[in-house]
Design a protein around this nucleic acid. Structure first.
Length: 879
DNA sequence: TTATGCACGC
DNA sequence: GACGTACGTGCATAAT
């Protein structure tokens, strides 16, 4: 029987896997992406190659015998990221559970081990397969030794036979080292001959065969320049050849008989996979499938009581409560039931039994009875709808989970529990199904699931609070997010009054104008088409009308506004299309979109603020999004005329922070010039222009101010030089110069930016004023884009996030003051740096005092906070 | 149902 | 010099 030896280049594959896969970590927070990639590759090799002998070779240490030849060997290499180096012990553990040999020798590289063993295997008439990501190994290729290189990712591999290699590279396997001697290799810091690339090297080798032969026949080398280069770097070339040559006689002590392989112990491997969190790989192991299914079903039994008549002694005052709802929209949604768990028992209370019970209501409304819930705001609003004003919400699993890591995008009870290594419940998807198949299960299944969720909250609460303490985020949680949930809940429940007549009126007008435009566009295009389809529009503009193509998307021509803007003068149709787009957006999103969500009875809109979503700590708003109602263009701004007070003689009142992000920046960066500018109440964009362009205040042109404003915008939102160049319509180089001039003008800001990136690289996260965290796993990425993105995020998040913290605190303070001082005024909306309220006309003056006091004094920074006010009979008029 | 392009706000 | 560029939500289209 033929024997087959598979040799795996462990370092190479792990590196490949690490950079190819996103930086996953398992529930214990250990990074496993490289090990995961390695494992998928390994499983595939085992299935496809069925080796009789198997060994994984690793590099030993920092120095190798090659460093004696050339101390700079592999110089200039980035240090291995800690997220990767911590995975080496894991992969060795993995190999041990698979009972696969691994091996390394001091002073030698994995290549040399592989070279040596493949040589002895050949002598024993074995077939050899080498797996690596390193092209150097190709020198080993011959009729008995095939080398498979990873192409993209780790499981996608390409097998090199001598023929394939020749076809692909234009040289024979034994010329691979000569090739490298000529070309060099920047990743190993092998010099080669400067100016000789792949093309020249192949040409020379085809002509002369080997490096030696080139130098023996120098007369025949064509080209004076090339000859010169070869002569000047002869020593380098021969040294490079020596460095690139794999040592096939390394002092390998392991014998082929030591590396025989006849499979792995399934149970052991399965155990490790579970430990590592490789759930998707379980089915690829023999016996894995049955095991996991069994496991999935094997939730521990849970005894619970279905309550028909709520009694007060079932509550202890420290109860976990889970409210299950059918729809996501909890203002209109149906309550499916309540799960209650405390240290006395587990209960399911059917909706009717709870809502008709005074005992339940009394318990809910008693602030001294502590409730541990998931999504306090949802619970608040849903129960308010049923006439219950729940109090004493002392723990919210959703908010806590969001604070611990906002990057996690599954903040539901089962997912959070899984992450905390608590598995005694199913995923909602398993119970309710998904998509069109979604439905409420039979009542026993439902009630058990609801109780299990309450149970998970009850059991994990202390652990989660502990984690918050560990990260010094307890105040952020108890003093900011938790009380804010109540404030936001009241805002959502109260809603915003909408004048639907006004919306309909505007809709009529828009419809007429759109119809006219549509006809005109068809006329000019010479045919009817769907103007709303970027694909069809692209064909008309760039093929039929032959307008110049300025930008392409991955699917075709770009028809984005900035492109159309550039074509505005090229064809009569362009301004019409731009206007059609603008009006079409108003019609579909704002007129029709808003009308769809107005409550018929109240004529109010109840948006929902998502308090656990954004990576920076800002809120978001959905169904509808009331944080992006048009304001920039007059036409769109009129939509705001439809947002009106809910009582007669009331007004819409708005207070917005002026330049809050730049003020926060001045504070955290401690930049003296920026701080002075704000203390002196200077126009910050003019001030920036003065410093960046080095002119006096009187010489700042409106164009300079506009550019300075864009730079400030860039600083606040963390855009790149490319982003700035786009927004100003200048080259990237010019944009870069602007940014540099800015940093020169505000050295404190520059210093902050450098330090925060350094801090992020060290800690792996950045923080806001109130200790909100954002983890940046890609801050040390080798990929330029990913790294740059993480760096900009590091600079930007503390600014945006701190501003978010501040306005959140202001909202809590304001809600308290409005109540204390018995205002009738109500908070309606928050739009990142502004608060929208409605109030009786006669409260306006007093209200302005109070809102000013709260917003300006809610935190003390090294610069003053400034707030602007406006009010009017509609939101439009509050300007 | 899902992905893509586009546009609105801060 | 690569590469694709803040954070969100929602609409329409087109492919699945």
């Amino acid at each position: 029987m033929s024997q087959k030896l598979v040799l795996i280049d462990g370092n190479s594959i792990l590196y490949r896997a690490f950079f190819a896969l996103p930086l996953l970590n398992n529930e214990k927070g250990v990074y496993t992406n490289a090990v995961y990639g390695f494992t998928t590759m390994l499983l595939r090799i085992l299935e496809e190659e069925k080796p009789t002998h198997l060994l994984v070779a690793f590099d030993a240490g920092k120095t190798t015998f090659r460093h004696k030849t050339y101390t700079e060997y592999k110089g200039g290499r980035q240090k291995t990221p800690s997220e990767l180096s911590e995975q080496f012990p894991l992969v060795k553990e993995l190999l041990e559970s698979f009972e696969i040999s691994h091996y390394e020798i001091d002073q030698f590289e994995a290549d040399d081990i592989i070279g040596t063993l493949s040589k002895s295997a050949k002598q024993d008439d074995m077939e050899v397969k080498v797996i690596s990501g390193d092209r150097d190994l190709l020198q080993l290729v011959d009729k008995d030794v095939n080398v498979s290189l990873t192409k993209k990712g780790v499981t996608n591999i390409e097998n090199y036979t001598p023929d394939f290699l020749e076809e692909k590279m234009g040289i024979r396997p034994d010329q691979v080292v000569d090739m490298k001697a000529l070309m060099g290799d920047s990743s190993d810091n092998i010099p080669g001959i400067p100016g000789v690339g792949e093309k020249t090297a192949v040409k020379l080798l085809n002509q002369f065969g080997t490096l030696e032969s080139i130098y023996e026949n120098m007369d025949e080398v064509s080209g004076k320049k090339l000859k010169e280069k070869l002569e000047n770097h002869k020593d380098d070339a021969f040294m490079s050849k020596e460095l690139a040559t794999i040592n096939r006689d390394s002092p390998v002590t392991v014998k082929l008989t030591d590396v025989t392989y006849d499979g792995y112990p399934s149970q052991k491997v399965l155990g490790l996979f579970k430990e590592l969190g490789f759930h998707s790989l379980l089915t690829r192991i023999d016996g894995g499938e049955a095991e996991t299914e069994e496991q999935a079903d094997a939730l521990e039994d849970i005894d619970f009581t279905v309550i028909e008549d709520v009694k007060s002694d079932m509550f202890t005052g420290e109860d976990a409560l889970f409210v299950e709802m059918l729809e996501e929209h909890y203002y209109y949604g149906t309550i499916l039931g309540f799960g209650v768990v405390n240290n006395q028992g587990h209960y399911f209370i059917p909706t009717v039994a709870a809502l008709e019970s005074d005992v339940f209501k009394n318990w809910a409304e008693n602030k001294d009875k502590k409730k541990f819930v998931f999504d306090a705001k949802r619970v608040t609003v849903a129960l308010k709808r049923k006439g219950i004003d729940i109090k004493g919400l002392s723990f919210d699993m959703l908010l806590a989970s969001y604070i611990i890591n906002p990057a996690e995008n599954h903040h539901d009870v089962p997912s959070i529990s899984q992450r905390m290594n608590y598995h005694n419940l199913s995923y909602d998807e398993e119970v309710f199904g998904k998509g069109a198949k979604q439905k409420v299960p039979e009542s026993e299944v439902l009630s058990e699931h609801v109780v299990r969720k309450a149970n998970a909250i009850f059991h994990l609460k202390d652990q989660i609070v502990e984690k918050l303490k560990e990260n010094d985020q307890q105040r952020l949680y108890t003093e900011l997010e938790l009380p804010l949930a109540t404030v936001l809940g009241e805002m959502e429940y109260y809603g915003v009054k909408v004048d639907t007549n006004r919306l309909n009126e505007m809709g009529e007008e828009l419809k007429e104008r759109l119809d006219t435009l549509e006809q005109e566009i068809y006329e000019l295009a010479g045919e009817r088409f769907n103007i709303n389809s970027p694909k069809q529009l692209g064909v008309i503009l760039f093929e039929k009308l032959e307008l110049p193509v300025i930008k392409k998307t991955k699917t075709g021509y770009s028809t984005a506004a900035d492109v159309l803007e550039q074509l505005k003068d090229k064809h009569e149709i362009m301004p019409k299309i731009l206007l059609y787009r603008q009006l079409g957006k108003l019609q579909s999103t704002y007129i029709e979109g808003l009308l769809k969500v107005v409550d018929e009875d109240e004529q109010k809109i109840h948006t929902r603020f998502n308090q656990a979503l954004t990576q920076t700590g800002r809120l978001s708003s959905t169904e509808p999004n009331l944080q992006n109602i048009p304001i920039r263009l007059e036409e769109g701004r009129k939509i705001r005329q439809a947002f009106v007070p809910s009582n007669e003689n009331w007004v819409i009142f708005a207070g917005d922070y002026s330049q809050i992000e730049l003020r926060v920046l001045a504070h955290i960066a401690g930049d003296e010039k920026l701080i002075d500018a704000f203390r002196n109440n200077q126009d910050i964009h003019t001030k920036t222009a003065m410093d960046v362009f080095n002119v006096s205040e009187d010489d700042v042109t409106s164009n300079m101010r506009r550019q300075a404003k864009a730079v400030n915008f860039g600083i606040v939102y963390g855009i790149s030089d490319y982003g700035l160049s786009q927004s100003l319509g200048i080259t990237r180089k010019e944009a870069k110069a602007f940014i540099e001039a800015y940093f020169e003008s505000f050295p404190g800001v520059k210093k902050y930016m450098d330090e925060i990136v350094k801090e992020a690289k060290q800690n792996g996260y950045v923080q806001t004023l109130m200790n909100r965290r954002r983890y940046l796993p890609e801050i040390n990425s080798r990929n330029f884009n990913r790294r740059s993105f993480a760096e900009r995020t590091a600079m930007n998040t503390p600014i945006q996030g701190s501003a978010a913290d501040i306005i959140k605190k202001a909202m809590i303070d304001l809600a308290a003051r409005l109540e204390e001082e018995k205002f009738e005024a109500k908070l309606l909306l928050q739009v990142h740096d502004e608060l929208i309220l409605e109030a009786p006309e006669n409260e306006v003056e007093q209200l302005q005092q109070t809102v000013l006091d709260v917003m300006v004094n809610t935190v003390q920074l090294d610069v003053p906070l400034k707030v602007d006010f406006a009010h009017g009979t509609t939101w439009f008029d509050a300007k």
